[in-house]
Design a protein around this nucleic acid. Structure first.
Length: 646
RNA sequence: GCCGGCUUGGCGCAAUUGGUAGCGCACCGCUCUUGUAAAGCGGGGGUUGCGGGUUCGAGUCCCGCAGUCGGCUCCA
């Protein structure tokens, strides 16, 4: 009998897979076992590292505050957390003290020792840990806990991990835990840090008490930690809320209300370019542009079925003239009324309506965030009315359209999510309808060749959906477009068309939002481009900078010519010096600076300065204008010399 | 909605144990300004988010509200 320490001499091996199961290196193995190493750099190894770091933090917390009761402490993406029941929430000073204490524990090189216990033993040892006792109780009951809880009590048996002082053999701390763990705490090294603290509901339910959660990050090396921290800083620099203020794009006036943005002229330019382009593409794809009001009588949303489910996320109703009116939280009921405004023939199908519909949703005060979670938003919302036979083709058409549109805005990397019916009773319709609709969506999603992630229970109440998730320039994913298959609303609204045989048939309705919300997509684009938009979206595309005042008239001519051809071009006639003007407009991320002095005037040329500081001197005027216009029309990103085709 | 942090001129920040608000950028004015990221001088601008309280005295302490940030819950 040997163990993993004997089998693997490589110190980057922190655990092993025995017959497929990840275990501690201390586990005994036989020649019959299939044993593979788990290195600290592997996904499983990183999880073990992070989970072990969580244990160290918990131990440190209880050293600093022996009254703290333990919740759970699982690994998460890039790090870990641990929940504690403490009388007063953690302060920054507390976190500093905990960090210091945890550093000592890491340095001490405590060993993690696994020990199988009976339920009685576990209850006796953890008598002062009420949350752990609750988890032990749950283990007896049906396994309903989520994955994070399984970190504590998953698997076939109850185990406790002892942290042992390697010098004395004394058990200094212990925790109910499934494991596995690093061989010792020293392997956590210098690649960890606490990142923040926040409250979290016990077992994720707002009916339960709130615990105080400490988040941390942990990496195999100090360099990887630093790299992670730099990446976080980069993300912070791209934050659309910050860039929105710096670039004068939008604001959230307190006087209007939380989550209700106003777009300034520069943000307005971008929003209008987005809308114009998206409207044009929809029309090219066979959609008809429609428009619907912002409020309606309550009965409309009773008909659609929304009200019973979503009344608490709609703004409260206004009562007037014996009717209740709601601000709309969705557009589909109104578009249905356009469909049913007259008799429809099968010859008209697929019938596709599209609008920029502004909807209002009463998001809870704690969730409103920048442009990504607002209370008033504009959906690029479309509804296709089709026969059942046409539905697969229409879904495919919509998916291809959505993807091509996102690509036009510079997003290239996608995966799909298929949200299906869950077990709750909020989902209306028969099993067969759900199965049929889900099958249609799944087939199209699979045929796309994109990665497909299941999302059980994530569907809207009226039908399943495909959502498109896009990765941005720094690898974060955002939910963008949705395509929803709806067999319920056509029935509720009594929609029908006359078929070829003269019979009345019910159409299938397919909801689709390409950007989800224009506001959110705007926010995503800001972060994706870090505020340096492609030429066609840039609020100011060209700024003319004279080397000295004398050259203003010369530059004015070309700027004026560009302007007349539709280019957003300005001439900087302020009394700043040239260098200052370059700085000002570079910080505003203007893609093209046109500079001219005596040399250029004498030669009838201008000089380009690009966003990255590179230059291109002596460009003939006619050439400059032609190239700029072509780059705008081609929706090119222009950052450096060479990005603007000759 | 819940927990915690934060809120000082347009923006970013400062103000010793509570002693009566400053700085940089931006803005305005004047002078200057010929080649690729900040010319010089001067000026205006804040009842310190709002309401209440403690105090001789509150930007600093207490309470409530709003906004915002980080999470949790939620997200048609």
């Amino acid at each position: 009998m040997v163990d993993g320490f004997a089998r693997f001499k490589d110190r980057s091996v922190v655990a092993m897979r025995v017959n497929g199961e990840v275990t501690d290196l201390a586990t005994s193995i036989t020649d019959d076992d299939v044993v593979e190493p788990v290195t600290i750099e592997s996904p499983a190894g990183l999880s073990i590292l992070r989970h072990s770091a969580a244990h160290v933090i918990a131990q440190a917390v209880q050293r600093v505050n022996p009254e703290a009761k333990l919740g759970i402490g699982p690994p998460i993406t890039d790090g870990f957390y641990y929940d504690f029941d403490v009388v007063t929430p953690f302060t920054p000073e507390d976190l500093a003290a905990i960090t210091k204490e945890a550093g000592r524990i890491v340095q001490a090189g405590q060993r993690f020792i696994r020990r199988v216990v009976t339920e009685e033993q576990a209850r006796a040892e953890l008598v002062s840990e009420p949350y752990k006792l609750e988890l032990i109780g749950l283990k007896g009951a049906a396994a309903t806990g989520d994955d994070n809880e399984n970190v504590e009590v998953g698997g076939g048996e109850l185990t406790i991990y002892d942290n042992v002082n390697p010098a004395t053999g004394e058990v200094v701390w212990k925790d109910l835990c499934r494991g596995p763990h690093l061989p010792n705490t020293r392997m956590i090294g210098h690649g960890w840090a606490l990142t923040r603290s926040a409250a979290a509901y016990w077992r994720g339910s707002e009916k339960n008490p709130q615990l105080q959660r400490i988040y941390g990050t942990a990496w195999p090396s100090k360099d990887q930690l630093r790299e992670y921290q730099l990446q976080q800083e980069e993300a912070a620099k791209r934050d659309h809320r910050r860039l929105g203020a710096e670039l004068d794009l939008f604001s959230f006036p307190e006087e209007i209300g939380s989550g209700l943005p106003v777009f300034h002229p520069r943000g307005g330019v971008i929003k209008r370019e987005m809308e114009d382009y998206v409207r044009r593409r929809h029309i090219e794809e066979g959609f008809e542009y429609v428009s619907t009001p912002h409020v309606s009588k309550a009965t409309l949303f009773e008909t659609s079925g929304h009200l019973p489910y979503y009344a608490d996320t709609m703004f409260p109703p206004m009562r007037l003239e014996n009717s209740e009116y709601y601000l709309k939280a969705m557009n589909c009921p109104m578009q249905n009324l356009i469909f049913s405004s007259r008799g429809r023939s099968y010859r008209e199908l697929p019938l596709r309506f599209f609008e920029f519909g502004t909807v209002y949703r009463y998001e809870k005060s704690g969730v409103v965030q920048g442009l990504t979670r607002v209370r008033g938003l504009t959906q690029d919302d479309s509804h296709s009315y089709v026969t059942e036979e046409q539905a697969p083709g229409e879904v495919e058409h919509l998916l291809n359209f959505v993807l091509s549109l996102l690509r036009d805005f510079g997003l290239e990397d996608f995966y799909l999510e298929l949200s299906t019916r869950g077990s709750s009773d909020k989902f209306i319709g028969t099993d067969r309808e759900w199965d049929d609709a889900t099958t249609v969506l799944r087939r199209v999603a699979e045929a796309s060749g994109l990665e497909l992630v299941p999302d059980p229970g994530g569907a809207a109440f009226y039908g399943p959906k495909i959502s498109v998730q896009a990765r941005d320039a720094i690898g974060r994913t955002w939910q963008m477009s949705t395509i929803q298959y709806d067999f319920n609303q056509p029935a509720r609204f009594g929609l029908e068309y006359t078929a070829a045989d003269g019979s009345r048939q019910q159409p299938v309705m397919i909801h689709s939002a390409k950007f989800g919300s224009l506001e959110r997509f705007f926010g995503v684009l800001i972060e994706h481009y870090a505020g340096a938009f492609p030429l066609w979206l840039s609020p100011v595309q060209v700024v003319g900078i004279p080397v000295a005042q004398e050259y203003e008239p010369y530059l004015h001519d070309i700027i004026d010519r560009l302007r007349r051809s539709g280019v957003r071009a300005e001439l900087d006639t302020s009394d700043d010096r040239m260098q200052k003007k370059i700085r000002t407009h570079t910080k505003q991320k203007v893609p093209l600076l046109l500079i001219a002095g005596e040399n250029d005037r004498a030669a009838g040329t201008v000089s380009f300065r690009y966003r990255d500081g590179s230059q291109e001197n002596g460009v003939a005027l006619a050439n400059a204008a032609r190239r700029i216009q072509a780059a705008i029309a081609g929706r090119l990103q222009v950052v450096s010399r060479g990005d603007l085709p000759a």
